[in-house]
Design a binder for these strands. Structure first.
Lengths: 129, 129, 129, 129
DNA sequence: GTGGTCTAGACCACG
DNA sequence: GTGGTCTAGACCACA
């Protein structure tokens, strides 16, 4: 995996280390990062995104604690073999639920018609592909 | 307006004062809270949700600073007359954009098919109505 | 709980933050720290033991991630209500197993008679009480 | 001595080279490995346990530095003739002290009765024999 | 007052 | 080369 695949937004409300954690967590759950896949080194990520190595290290450590990453001594970090690889679609969907609820609630409070919201989201989902 | 209309989740990632601010902001933008509408008192909200009065006060002050609320001496806080009531749909839509982008990105990283995400969101948008 | 109840050994092989984590974990499992118990503040612990606040903070965060501690905003950290309070003796015993195996193995490799090892451990267990 | 007598746990908290060092140190102190006993070659150990040869070499070098092993040119490493073979029981016991203290402390924090801990350790000490 | 985040930089441990 | 730990210090967010 390459450091450029991570998107870091300094200054966002979400702290940097957490941005990394959540992205990796999803990419592992989604199967984009299969077990055994080697992650870019702490220094590499830190250099590429111009952030402090410790911030990256913190993210990696948290994921190691969760059992999603494992340390290969002297080599780096890799997606853990025991990380559930291809979670079922339903399971992955459940990871999206909180965000979906938040969005629905916000849309309702803004009195926006469902159609418009869905159409826009549809566009954005296409874009990425 | 009644204190029970606010949804507070202490312990959530989003700080309490911001939960209040964002909800009120959207309810004003959506027209659910029309100009002149009287808000529940700081004490009332704090008591009802068992949170610190200072936290509520802070939220109200922020909205007052934005010009969305105004202080009616001896009466309390009310939605400001000058608060743009029914912003155009496009404007309200733009308030939703960041959330939509986040969602789309997360869905992509989880390798979830667009259809499934849209269907689920559709359900949630119906539910609330 | 008081900061003096923690025993910190700088320079030990076990990193400081982990010393804190493990001690607290055991004291919670053992019931010495009941749910709701307020922990000494990060600054207090750091000051008392002359270590960096971030080191303490790191320990607290890890335990929060495990669900053993919870953040009371503006107040500090407390033992989580959902933390299993009085684990069964068998469960607590299982937390000791790895250490027991290591010890047994070391004793065997040193060809030390079981009686002598047990006698010495008995003394040490008395001492603390 | 055979490579299979070493127990290596990669991924454990204790670094691999140290696992080797400590085991050999105890087996020499305990008399299980008498002076003159030939050790398995670096390659053999590394191959058998699928670890890096440098790691094994490092362990051997450390023990050589301590005077416990000696390099027999063209033959390999052997337990040094000058290695104090059968240290007194008291001396060997002292090597166990730190572990005993740690264990006693952990047991106390877990509020486990001394009897139970001693009984379990007794079992484990029997098992190995 | 509380904890959280990030930085810069040093030093260590491991392979 | 890899990651881990710790420090000192700054600044922010929350109640």
């Amino acid at each position: 995996m390459d450091a450029s695949l991570l998107t870091i937004t300094p200054g966002a409300a979400e702290p940097i280390y957490r941005q990394i954690v959540e992205q990796l967590r999803r990419m592992i759950a989604g199967g984009q990062l299969p077990p055994g896949e080697l992650l870019p080194s702490v220094r590499e990520v830190a250099g590429f995104h111009a952030i402090n190595p410790m911030t990256v290290s913190r993210a990696y450590s948290l994921l190691e604690g969760e059992g999603l990453l494992e340390r290969l001594r002297g080599t780096g970090m890799a997606v853990a073999q025991r990380a559930r690889r291809a979670r079922s679609e339903a399971e992955r969907m459940s990871l999206l639920e909180p965000r979906l609820h938040d969005l629905a609630r916000a849309a309702r409070e803004l009195e926006l018609p469902a159609g418009r919201v869905l159409r826009r989201l549809g566009e954005l989902l296409e874009d990425g592909e």
